[in-house]
Every structure is written in structure tokens, then in C-alpha cells.
Design a protein around this nucleic acid. Structure first.
Length: 448
RNA sequence: CGGGGCAUAGCUCAGCCUGGUAGAGCACCUGGUUUGGGACCAGGGGGUCGGGUGUUCGAAUCAUCCUGCCCCGACCA
């Protein structure tokens, strides 16, 4: 992409409505614009990140055997009346009336809908287990939206729903998602920590919030130090195999958010030099709820003995749009955002220090072409801005690598590669710099 | 929903107290000088001062109502 033809409205000053760093940087880097409280438009740069995150989630969910569908944002109130949640959900649910005065709602989640879809498509226990997911916009009319995209009213979420014949089978489905989640976040450069969460009326031990640590996190969390660099399941993990060792390993050490925190237990189980007390951001939540929806919505199949059995279900959410903010909270410095390669809107920022100069124009054009042909996402700053402004903008939007081409370098056959994260600058012969970058970028596309 | 704050140019803000018809920096346009870490000079465009009502000869400024947004709290992926 040529910057001169792109839409990247960057801001030099920080808009005053933004309080936390990710919100400030997303506004400044031209990623989003607020449309109303907790509702955002995604500009080109932000959308690219959103898509990359969604694709990682998609890739890993598919790997774990989940199957993608797409349900609507608008749902009928009837369904929710059947499950009893139409009343329970309260004012957080945005209720709408259509022209025929039918009660509709903008979906805050999809348990009811997916349950009926699955119910109507399956008759036999032989069709189990299944896990269906979609990545769709949700709306929850939060009392007080804040923190930009991290706590918006409209948000993009991946939600998966598992269907099993028994609780035992359901537990296996839960474990698959547990392992998949560790990989999803690790692939974005985030170390997530599964923490025991409130299971609500169902009880049991099958509910975990996946938390990343960040100073601006909204909740206080407590955990064992060793979880912070716990081993991530490998890319070729066999999801049909026994995953309990992985889950056990991750859940054997203490980890809890403040509402589940037990100070006495924490002190007893975790040596004082391993005790971590920090702020955290919830980026995923998985839980098993048995037959809570399958019973009222009559989602049953015939079991081996011919009797109908209500299915055991779980649901598994990832806050896709929230992750954009979450990653920035975890990955920034004074100059701006520092994207991990797998989610970077562009992988390389090519800077022509003297647009209009035949030498740099030619060198940049050929470098751009080679990178693009190799499948690298490149943003080429071919504008007439001064060098300093170009550097500042590139740092702000946080592309992992900057490839700097100036008249002096071209004269010597050299270009400069800057690593955004470390700040290291390296002079590389202009003939080989494209290959060097291609290798470096590709080696970092999947971090685990 | 309770408490607090803000609303003037695309962004950051001054002007308001003490009423006299709107400013700065950055951004943008034109010309020139510049050109390796957010340049400089000159000229220029852009605002029904969030909206209504009232007070007044006259309101960005005073009064009042409304709306929007932000922060703290309870609530949440």
C-alpha cells in the first residue's frame, strides 16, 4: 500500500476523551474513531489488525475442530423468552421493535440461537460431539462504556458452543478449547493466564477467564509466577488426544481474579517469592453450563439406547475487538504502538526519505515490489513529508520493521532496517535487504 | 443509575469571572527556502462558540432547561 493513496488520519495531539494508552494510541494512529459512547468506526489500519486477530482465532479454532458459522446480529425476542433470559438480561440488552411491532434485540450473545440451530439439525448421538463458532458483532448496553475499544458497547467477539452427549464428553470439549485458547493468545504475542472464574449456578471447576497482565487492567489478579511463562501447547497438538495433562498443569498452580481470590489459600500454596499480584485484562472466557439451555429449548438427541438426551453444552468467548486494545496495552512505548508481527497491520514500513528523487524512488519501487511479491504486507511512505515526520508516524503506528531508503544510502548501495521493538538500526546492502526482511518477517508470523 | 467535570477551527487549547459580535499552536491550501528523527518565511481557507429559551440596545461570556462526551463508583467479553 502506498501511503499517498491510503487513508491514515494520524493525530499529533492526544484527544482529550481518551484516558488509557491503548485508546489514545488507537485514536492517534488513525485506527478507530468514536461514533458514540462505546461505539467505534474502524478505519483501514485498525480494521487490518482486527482482521488479523480474527484470522488467528479462526485458524486455531479450526485446528481444534470447531466449525465456523455466522449468526445474525439481530435476534427475535421469542427465543429469549423461552430460555427465560429475556427478563433476566435486563437493560444491558438492546431491545428493538420492527415495523410490525415485533420484539427484536441486538444480540449480546448467542446461546439461544445456536442451540435451536443445532437442535434442528441433529437427531442422533452419532452426530456428536460438535463445536460451532462464529465471529460476530455483539451489543451490550453497558452502564458505562470506557477504555475505548476495551470496554465498548458494540464489540466483535468470537463465541464457540460445544455440544456433547454427557458431562464427561463435555469436559473433553472444554479441554480442547482450553488448549486452543492458550495457543490463540500466544500466537498474538500475549502470554495469557487461565484463572479460575465464577461458575455461576452450575458449579464445578469448568470456568476460566484468560487474563493478560497489563498495568491498566480492569481487575486485580493473583497468580503463581511460573504461570507467566508456562509452556504453550505445540502447533501440532492432537486435539483428539487426552488433553487433561495440559489443563492440569495449567490449573494446578494458583491463579484467581479478585472476586475469586482466597488470600489464605494463596499464601499457603504459593511461596512468597512466587506470588504475583497484578492488574489484568480479561481477553477470553470459557465455561461449561451443562443443560441450562438445551433443556428449555429442547435440544436433545437420541442416545444409544433410544432415549432422548439433553445435550451438555459449553460456551467459549474471545473478545476480538478488545484484543486490539489489549495488545496495545501490552505492546507500546513512548513512541507509539509496537505490533507483534502476527497482528501488525503491515509488517514492513518502507520509508522513502526523499520522494521525487530518482534514486530513492527507483530503489523503493523495486524493494516494494520484491516484498509484495514475497507476500509481505508493506506500507510504503512515498509522501513528500520530511524525514522526521515520517519516522515519527512510522513509530506511532508501530509496524515491526522500518526499511529506510535515503539518497546517501542509495549512493552507497545501502538501506537501513530498524527494528521497532528493540530500536536497533542496521545497515544492509540494498541488494539483499529485501531477502533479509522477508526471512525475518516470515519467521515471526507464527510465534508458537 | 449516584457523584464530579467538560463542550469555542480537523486536534490541543485561550477568551467567559468584569457582555460590545472570536483567537493561538499544530494540521490544511498557495508560493518560496529547506530536506536522515514531527523545519522556516510569507500569504490564505476554515467556527450559526453543543442545542433551546430567557435577561439585555447587544450574549461564546449572565440565567435556565436539554443533549452529548469524559472521569470515579456499582456492573461486565
Amino acid at each position: 500500500m502506498h501511503l499517498s493513496r491510503y487513508f491514515l488520519p494520524v493525530l499529533r495531539d492526544t484527544p482529550k476523551e481518551a484516558e488509557i494508552i491503548s485508546h489514545q494510541l488507537m485514536l492517534r494512529a488513525g485506527m478507530v474513531r468514536q461514533s458514540s459512547a462505546g461505539i467505534y468506526s474502524w478505519l483501514p489500519l485498525g480494521l487490518r489488525v482486527l482482521d488479523k486477530i480474527a484470522n488467528i482465532v479462526r485458524d486455531e479454532q479450526n485446528r481444534a475442530g470447531a466449525i465456523e458459522v455466522l449468526m445474525p446480529t439481530i435476534q427475535s425476542a421469542d427465543l429469549w423468552k423461552q430460555s427465560g433470559r429475556y427478563e433476566d438480561y435486563g437493560k444491558e440488552m438492546l431491545r428493538i421493535e420492527d415495523r410490525h411491532e415485533r420484539e427484536m434485540l441486538y444480540g449480546p450473545t448467542n446461546e439461544e440461537l445456536i442451540t435451536t440451530i443445532f437442535r434442528d439439525g441433529v437427531r442422533s448421538y452419532r452426530d456428536l460431539p460438535r463445536n460451532l463458532y462464529h465471529i460476530q458483532w455483539k451489543f451490550r448496553d453497558e452502564i458505562r462504556p470506557r477504555f475505548g475499544v476495551m470496554r465498548g458497547r458494540e464489540f466483535l467477539m468470537k463465541d464457540a458452543y460445544s455440544f456433547d452427549l454427557s458431562e464427561e464428553e463435555g469436559r473433553r470439549s472444554y479441554h480442547r478449547m482450553f488448549a486452543s485458547y492458550l495457543r490463540i493468545f500466544a500466537r498474538m504475542g500475549l502470554q495469557s493466564i487461565p484463572m479460575a472464574a465464577d461458575t455461576g449456578p452450575i458449579g464445578g471447576d469448568l470456568s476460566h477467564e484468560f487474563i493478560i497482565l497489563a498495568e491498566t487492567g480492569e481487575s486485580q489478579v493473583f497468580c503463581h509466577q511460573d504461570l507467566i511463562d508456562g509452556a504453550i501447547p505445540p502447533i501440532d497438538l492432537d486435539y483428539d488426544g487426552d488433553l487433561t495433562p495440559i489443563v492440569d498443569k495449567w490449573t494446578s498452580l494458583y491463579a484467581a481474579t479478585d472476586e475469586m481470590h482466597d488470600a489464605a489459600k494463596f499464601d499457603a500454596e504459593v511461596p512468597s517469592d512466587k506470588q504475583v499480584s497484578a492488574r489484568g485484562i480479561e481477553i477470553g472466557h470459557i465455561f461449561f453450563f451443562g443443560t441450562k439451555y438445551s433443556e428449555p429449548l429442547n435440544c436433545k438427541v437420541q442416545g444409544p439406547d433410544g432415549t432422548p438426551v439433553a445435550l451438555h453444552m459449553g460456551s467459549y468467548g474471545v473478545g476480538v475487538s478488545r484484543l486490539v486494545g489489549g495488545i496495545i496495552e501490552a505492546c507500546h512505548d513512548d513512541g507509539g504502538i509496537v505490533w507483534p508481527v502476527p497482528v501488525a497491520p503491515f509488517e514492513v514500513g518502507l520509508i522513502n526519505l526523499k520522494s521525487g528523487d530518482a534514486g530513492t524512488d527507483g530503489a523503493c519501487a523495486s524493494l516494494y515490489e520484491r516484498l509484495i511479491n514475497a507476500g509481505i504486507d508493506v506500507l510504503y511512505d512515498d509522501t513528500g513529508e520530511r524525514a522526521g515526520a515520517k519516522f515519527a508516524t512510522m513509530d506511532l503506528i508501530g509496524l515491526p520493521y522500518q526499511l529506510v531508503v535515503g539518497p546517501m544510502g542509495v549512493a552507497n548501495g545501502m538501506a537501513e532496517v530498524k527494528d521497532r521493538k528493540t530500536g536497533d538500526k542496521q545497515e544492509v546492502p540494498i541488494d539483499t535487504v529485501a531477502d533479509t526482511l522477508i526471512d525475518r518477517v516470515k519467521s515471526q508470523r507464527i510465534l508458537c
